[in-house]
């Protein structure tokens, strides 16, 4: 328990003592992750095979149809 507390304190103090440029970087990281995982992933990047086909067999058949068409 003591060890976990030490680790948590280590991170908390580290983030608290971040210099200005470090805070700017964290802001950029968080905005970037939001754009990537919330905006892009949800609205623009669905997994096509998972979304459009129910079983692996259907997915395989769809891919075979595509890759064997000259």
């Amino acid at each position: 328990m003591e060890r976990i507390k030490k680790i948590v304190d280590f991170y908390v103090t580290g983030f608290r003592e971040l210099p200005g440029w470090g805070r700017a970087l964290w802001a950029i990281i968080l905005i970037k992750l939001f754009i990537m995982f919330v905006v892009l992933r949800l609205f623009f990047f669905p997994d096509q095979l998972q979304t459009n086909y129910k079983t692996d067999e259907e997915r395989a058949n769809h891919v075979i149809e595509n890759i064997t068409k000259p």
Binding site: R41, F44, F45, P46, Q48, L49, Q50, V63, N66
Partner: peptide, 13 residues
Amino acid sequence: FEFGTNWSNYSWF
């Protein structure tokens, strides 16, 4: 992300 959306045949293969 692009593998699953834009390159699904490839991802499966």
